[in-house]
Amino acid sequence: MAKKLKGEQFYLSANDLISGDVVYLAKNKWSRNFNDAIKIKRIDIERYEKIAVEDENKCLIVGPIFIELTEEGKIRRLRDKIRKNGLTININQ
């Protein structure tokens, strides 16, 4: 899960097991609100990786991933920006 990560700080994200909604690890909970997400330092990755595995086993989440951040603390990859902001297209259904 933490292999080949770039940068020094990260968010921990996943999907809610039941709804599939994108969630972020916040203080002692998983939150749908990105603003609640806590920043994780590289040095702490292993600890949070264990939390993710435990919470997946506790049937709270599925597919945990670390979100790479830039030096300025912004989300680095487009994929993760799309996960945070939603579709970039107007489906106008």
Binding site: L17, G20, D21, N57, C59, R83, G86
Partner: peptide, 26 residues
């Protein structure tokens, strides 16, 4: 899966056999 009798690793191949993927948002 929901009551924890199956781990995600055990459940994943079963859901995939029934066409259920996990994508970016859902």
């Amino acid at each position: 899966r929901l009551n924890g009798d199956l781990t995600e690793d055990e459940f994943k191949p079963l859901r995939l056999m029934n066409g259920l993927y996990l994508q970016l948002h859902a």
